[in-house]
Design a protein around this nucleic acid. Structure first.
Length: 419
DNA sequence: TCTGGGGTCCTAGGACCC
DNA sequence: TCTGGGGTCCTAGGACCC
């Protein structure tokens, strides 16, 4: 019988911040998105105060003041490092594993030959002991059911482990879970299905799969089958290269002039190019977009995307910056207050795979060696140590992160001190 | 005044072909 | 007055995920 465990870190970003600040263990706290814009992680104490996921920080300033809620800017270097440590521990406990996100992994526990509940508790204890990270464990026969069991582990169980492998356990789980907790059912689908009287995971599992497929999508059909214990989603052990790479940022303040937009777009193109080279691909189509804010109804709106084909597929930062800036020139209009820009790399391919364009300009000589050197220096000495002249270290548009914690585990000069 | 970033997959519709 | 059918490919947009 297929058996999956979903291991999910509790309040992951907040828990990372607490690893090196045990004094904060019971303090209400939140971690904010880039530019200190929205709440993206909340401690249990912050949840109890009614602070919602994704809530704009400025809207809860009073609440934060009144209850002494501690806020942190997101520190992705730290979170990425902690995440890698957790995965290392999990790999030792289940060799077949899918890293699903920065704070979640699916483990294949089929044929374990040990009692599942006990093994779930063992997983939890090992991760806690070796990394300090609290996790919940949901175990069932499909990935969708394991996700749901994990939800129950957090909400309904003292031990932090829920096993739902037997039919009666699964029925109880489905009847207990609101529709919106089902993996793959978002806000829109919840509203549509709700109108049909489908309110719980159990209700959804009772629907006719074929009818739901015709009325909604093949994805929902698979979700229904998975809820009934029929596996439709396989474990994905990774190594598939990405099909699209993007780098985009909101500005710390509105930008109106072309010059700072050029700086920002050039720096995003460079960052995207680094990611592209890290997976060893070249790119054949680049898109660049700029847009004004979307929340202020009184502000004139503008949003455009430019697509720039690369006739010679490339992963050279200089080529991608050039293409991005050419695209930007075509879509920039003065008179707007721009809030965000982004660069997307598409139609990715491995270098040997692409057909050379007979009339395309010749690729740059020694490009690969130069880029490899730049990447090596930036990897060892810090991102942005070597960069193109048109990419400033910091622009007026650069991200605001006023509340960032130290890089406890990833910067020599910010290591915690022990006295 | 202030509202994140990076992905995937699916579908519908249009262009194009024979 | 009458105006095919089926397949493929591409793109844009939407929904979902964390």
């Amino acid at each position: 019988m297929p058996t999956y465990a979903l291991v999910d870190c509790n309040n992951f970003y907040v828990s990372c911040e607490r690893l090196f600040r045990p004094d904060l263990r019971t303090v209400p706290m939140v971690v904010l998105s880039n530019n200190d814009g929205c709440v993206v992680s909340r401690s249990n104490e912050a949840k109890a105060l009614g602070i919602g996921m994704g809530e704009p920080f400025f809207k809860i300033r009073d609440l934060v003041q009144a209850h002494g809620v501690l806020a942190f800017s997101s520190n992705y270097a730290l979170y990425g490092d902690v995440s890698a440590r957790v995965v290392r521990v999990l790999r030792g406990l289940a060799p077949r594993l899918e890293v699903y996100s920065i704070d979640e992994s699916f483990l294949d526990l089929a044929g374990l030959g040990r009692p599942l509940a006990g093994y779930g508790r063992h997983i939890r204890a090992e991760v806690q002991l070796l990394t300090g990270m609290p996790v919940g464990v949901g175990i069932s026969t499909t990935k969708t059911l394991a996700k749901l069991a994990n939800w129950a582990a957090k909400r309904r169980s003292q031990s932090g482990v829920v096993v739902a492998t037997r039919p009666e356990q699964q029925a109880a789980l489905l009847k207990d879970a609101p529709l919106g907790e089902v993996w793959g059912v978002g806000r829109k689908l919840q509203a549509h299905l709700g109108a049909l009287g489908v309110k719980t995971a159990w209700d959804l599992a009772q629907q006719d799969a074929w009818t739901m497929r015709k009325q909604f999508s093949v994805v929902l059909e698979k979700t229904i089958r998975e809820l009934r214990g029929e596996p439709c989603f396989a474990l994905d052990e990774g190594s598939e290269p990405k099909q699209m790479i993007t780098c985009s940022r909101s500005f710390s303040r509105r930008v109106t002039e072309l010059a700072p937009l050029r700086e920002a777009v050039a720096s995003y193109a460079c960052r995207a190019a680094e990611k592209l080279r890290a997976q060893g691909d070249v790119c054949q189509l680049l898109q660049v977009y700029i847009r004004t804010g979307v929340f202020n109804p009184d502000e004139p709106r503008y949003a455009r995307t430019a697509s720039v084909p690369l006739h010679t597929p490339s992963n050279d930062s200089r080529d991608l910056v050039q293409a991005a800036l050419a695209g930007l020139e075509g879509i920039y209009r003065p008179g707007y207050r721009y809030q965000k820009a982004g660069v997307m790399l598409m139609n990715l391919a491995s270098p040997g795979q692409v057909q050379a364009d007979l009339f395309a300009p010749a690729p740059r000589p020694r490009s690969a060696a130069l880029m490899a050197t730049v990447d090596r220096i930036n990897t060892s000495m810090g991102r942005g140590t070597v960069r193109l002249a048109r990419v400033p270290a910091l622009g007026g548009w650069s991200m605001k992160q006023e509340l960032r914690s130290p890089g406890y585990t990833c910067r020599w000069d910010e290591l915690p001190r022990v006295r």
